[in-house]
Amino acid sequence: MTVASTSPPLRRPRGDGALAALFVAPAMLGFLVFLLWPTLRGVYLSFTRFNLLTPAEWVGLDNYVRMVNDPIFWDSLTVTVEYVAINIGVQTVSALAIAVLLQRLTQSAVLRGIVLTPYLMSNVVAGIVWLWILDTQLGIGNEIIAGLGFDRIPFLADETWAIPTIALINVWRHVGYTALLLFAGLQAIPNDMYEAAKVDGASEWRMFWRITMPLLRPILAVVLIMTVIGSFQVFDTVAVTTAGGPANATNVLQYYIYGSAFGRFQFGYASAMSVALLVVLSAITFLQYRLTRAGHTDLG
């Protein structure tokens, strides 16, 4: 034992606060400049008339009054909800099925890789490729449909087909990623539960409903919250495939906001709609969080 090994006297960690602030500063700066400030400024702009090139002019609640009375806004909100319902509905069910199959049937990393492949492609590229495949006259997809003796389907050019088509294109791209998230959640479920159930003679179907689903719930809830938010923000696929058409049938909210801002230079009105979207998304997220008890686990 030497003197040097004497533990230092207990001191209050005076310097740590400043050091912590230093470490947090870069992230904080990014948060302030790229998130907080734009949000605040967006809220401010929603009360103005602003075309980017001349100073903003305060107009009070005008933009919000216009929004409430704008049939195109309500129409685009309906279209967006329709998109989200199809997109999230199909995507979650298929992702869950894929994840469970991956977990219960195979441990192949190659298969997991293949499932993820569409996600590696850019959304814009995926949109354009599908636009070509599904073109009514020239698309290979429609050539096959016609070759089989069926009528050609105007997937992206008909008001009934366009939204489901775009929703499914995005399911195709995102389902693998969502499945992988759920798969990670499944890995957390202790295997001995399944073994115990098997000993008791439970079927796979019964194990899915009695073990998998309840224990996966917190992960599923988080995945749902994330994908619903992402889904509400659909923009790129619409921009490259239908540009909101035909006749506003795919004029989703983000596309309408984009057109109002960067097409018509109505940044004030676009900001008001963005604020509305923020409110809608916050409400939905809050509700989802509460309803699915995402913060609690049944494991343990």
């Binding site: 949000t39 702009l45 959304n123 923000q233 906001i257 940044f267 900001s271 979207l277």
Partner: peptide, 19 residues
């Protein structure tokens, strides 16, 4: 990659441009 036009995405762009 999905273009994450966050709720205020359009305005972030506007801000960046005005900066």
């Amino acid at each position: 990659m999905r273009i994450h036009m966050r709720t205020v995405g359009a305005l972030t762009g506007a801000l960046a441009l005005s900066l």
